[in-house]
Nucleic acid binder design. Sequence first.
DNA 1: AGCACGATTAACT
DNA 2: GTTAATCGTGCTC
Length: 205
Amino acid sequence: MQLTREFYSRPTLEVAEDLLGKALVRVESNGDLTSGLIVETEAYVGVDDLGCHARSGKTPRNVSMWGPPGHAYVYFNYGMHWLFNIVTERDDFPAAVLIRAIVPIKGLEIIRERRSRRGDTELTNGPAKLTQALGIKRETDGVDLCQIGSTLYLEEGKIIDPATITTHSRVGLNSVPEPWKSIKWNFRVSLQFAKPYPVASEPLP
DNA sequence: AGCACGATTAACT
DNA sequence: GTTAATCGTGCTC
């Protein structure tokens, strides 16, 4: 069943943790269906969070993050990568959850093709890898994830044992001042659960 | 108008 | 472990 607006209309840290184990589903106009189980998320909360894009106020790029919850915030980074976020909290408050890693569920052959037939552990274990795998790009920015028939939405996946969840510093905020640089707003399902795929930035031994 | 850099990835030593 | 790729964005002049 498709997750509703109420799920996203909560404090961002709660949503980020609860998104673990949910299924991200992508339906494209040509009939391609791909999906994956979320295993790593990251919270970005408000203008005071100096790691969050909203620190610069409302701009053309981050305007989706200021909109109502349950919508996509997709942005372009490093000149070549698309990153997918889910807007949380309430209208006019900028906050979102970055999806950093999934485990493929459906459309594995499509995913393998889009990922240039890389090894199965390298398919969707990174924020830009999973958007490439699911065909999430510019046109997905602002999409309503709660709308019936949406090309992008979430649904129930697997029940996650809270004991298997770990928290970490957010990835890639090297020049961000403390405490934002080290605050543990990154959430992961333990490696054991994610087998045979590793979570981002932490390859299997 | 110009510029430094980024919520990354892949290839290479 | 190090680094090139590649360009939109936000900031400074």
